Each structure stands twice: as C-alpha cells, then as structure tokens.
Amino acid sequence: MNKRILMCALVSGFLFLSQAVSAHQLEKDMHVLAKTITAFAQTDDLAEANKQLALMRKAAVSSKASLPHQLEGLTPENDQVKSYQGGLDQLIAEIDAVTALVEKGQLEDAKVEALKLVKLRNEYHQQFK
C-alpha cells in the first residue's frame, strides 16, 4: 500500500514538473518570437534578417511541443488544441514565405509580408494567453 502511494506521488510530481518545464519552454519560445520579430523589422542586412527568421522558425516549431496554461491537460483532439497548433502552423508557413523573399534579396517586400507575422501573433496570443 505504501509503495502505491509513493508511486502515485512520484508520478504526480513528475507530471507537475514536466508541465512546469513545458510551460517555461513555451514562455521562452514566445519571448524569442517577440525579440526576433523586432530585430527582423529593424535590420537592413540580409544575413541578419535570415538569422532572425531562422531563430523565429526554431522558436515557433519548439512552441508546438508545449501548450499554453489554459490548454494544459486537454487532448490533441480537442478543438482548442487544434486551433493553437493550427495557428503555429500558419505562423511557420508565414515565416517560410518571408524567408523566401529574403533569400531572393527582397528585404523590403519581406518586411511588408512580415506584418502578417505580427497579425498572426497578436490574433493567437489574444486567444491563448
């Protein structure tokens, strides 16, 4: 009996810790997204723009492994979870579109296209913060 209680306590503690780590990682990823969007908007250097977009994409992909606090405990089949994941997919696709423009040397066009990144971020951040 004591072994079962101890095992349940350990499993519960592990789950709590893993959710806390996951939430912390999501917070870090969101901070990176905010920082890199700003850095991208301020640069006039193609190499720096590519660097910021690569960091942005990495953070967006990493964010897919975590859920915001309000969605924790929900299954992947849940509509809200699907919407959150879909928003990240849209963000990643838009980062890829902006990256393609930068790779063609069209930085000004890329900056105009990047406004969609901000719009997506704001839209989904409002829903899932």
Score class of each variant (00 low, 15 high):
V11A: 12
Q42P: 08
K28L: 15
S83G: 09
H125L: 04
M30K: 14
A97L: 11
M1Q: 01
T36P: 11
Q106K: 05
L74F: 07
V98N: 04
A9R: 01
D79T: 13
L46Y: 01
L71P: 07
L67R: 06
K58G: 09
S63A: 12
Q127F: 02
D79N: 13
A49M: 06
A114R: 02
L17W: 07
D79H: 14
D79M: 12
N2V: 12
G13L: 01
M56H: 00
D96W: 04
F40I: 03
E108R: 03
Q80E: 11
V32F: 14
F16Q: 05
D44M: 10
Q127P: 02
Q85T: 00
Q106A: 06
V61L: 11
F40Y: 01
L15T: 06
H125G: 05
V81Q: 09
M30I: 12
E103I: 10
K129G: 11
S12F: 14
Q70C: 10
A47H: 05
E27T: 14
V102E: 01
N2W: 05
G87H: 00
E103K: 15
L117R: 04
N78H: 08
V102T: 00
L15C: 10
A100T: 11
L74K: 15
A9I: 04
K51Q: 14
L91W: 01
K116W: 13
A97V: 06
D109V: 12
V11K: 06
L46E: 00
Q52F: 08
N50G: 14
L71V: 03
K119M: 02
A59K: 03
T99K: 04
T43M: 09
P76T: 06
M1G: 06
D79F: 11
E113H: 00
K82V: 14
T75I: 08
F16V: 10
L117T: 09
G86C: 04
L53D: 06
E123G: 00
L67E: 07
L46I: 01
F40Q: 02
A49Q: 09
L53M: 02
K58A: 11
E94H: 04
A23V: 02
L15H: 05
F128C: 00
E77P: 11
C8H: 12
K51F: 11
K129R: 14
S83W: 08
H69N: 14
A100E: 09
D109A: 15
H31S: 13
K35G: 12
L101N: 12
